[in-house]
């Protein structure tokens, strides 16, 4: 199908880092089943680095590919770098997404950030709130 780039199809067909981390240091879940996509990110953090990351996604091809790519981009990175992940970086790494699928990359960024915030909260680490803007409201169902 020409809907997606080869990169997107590769990450969709062979998603990297699928699964669960039972003793995760941080877990983030964004999206809504009503809207058709939910992403859940599990982080294991060691020495201020993303030691391991796993994801589970309910959603379309680009949602699964965006989750997979986002986990690849932060794996092994220092926490400070992982926090800088943007949806544009995910989209570019996937060689682009169709315009109506860009929200999938936004969800991926938000899922990673939600997991990081959860890590800080669980471990009593102080952080700058402005790093974690509230996840955008779903324009569609108002959730």
């Amino acid at each position: 199908m020409a809907l997606y780039s080869e990169k997107v199809m590769d990450h969709f067909r062979n998603p990297r880092n699928v699964g669960v981390i039972e003793d995760a240091d941080g877990v983030g879940e964004v999206g809504n089943a009503k809207c058709g996509d939910i992403m859940k990110i599990y982080l294991k953090i060691k020495d201020d680095k993303i030691d391991d990351v796993k994801f589970e996604t309910f959603g379309c091809g680009s949602a699964i590919a965006s989750s997979s790519m986002a986990t690849e981009l932060i794996k092994g990175q220092p926490v400070s770098e992982a926090l800088k992940l943007t949806n544009q970086a995910v989209t570019e790494a996937l060689d682009g997404l169709p315009a109506h699928k860009l929200h999938c990359s936004v969800l991926a960024e938000e899922a990673i950030k939600a997991a990081m915030k959860d890590y800080y909260d669980r471990h009593g680490i102080a952080y700058d709130e402005s790093q974690f803007p509230a996840a955008h409201d779903c324009e569609h169902c108002g959730v």
């Binding site: 199908m1 969709f12 067909r13 809207c35 058709g36 959603g59 949602a63 699928k101």
Partner: peptide, 23 residues
């Protein structure tokens, strides 16, 4: 599960179908 990913994977197996998912 979500329908679009279902269709794409079925297409990989040679089955052309459709879905009523939003995507």
């Amino acid at each position: 599960i979500e329908g679009e990913s279902l269709l794409l994977l079925l297409d990989d197996k040679g089955v052309c179908a459709s879905s009523g998912s939003a995507c």
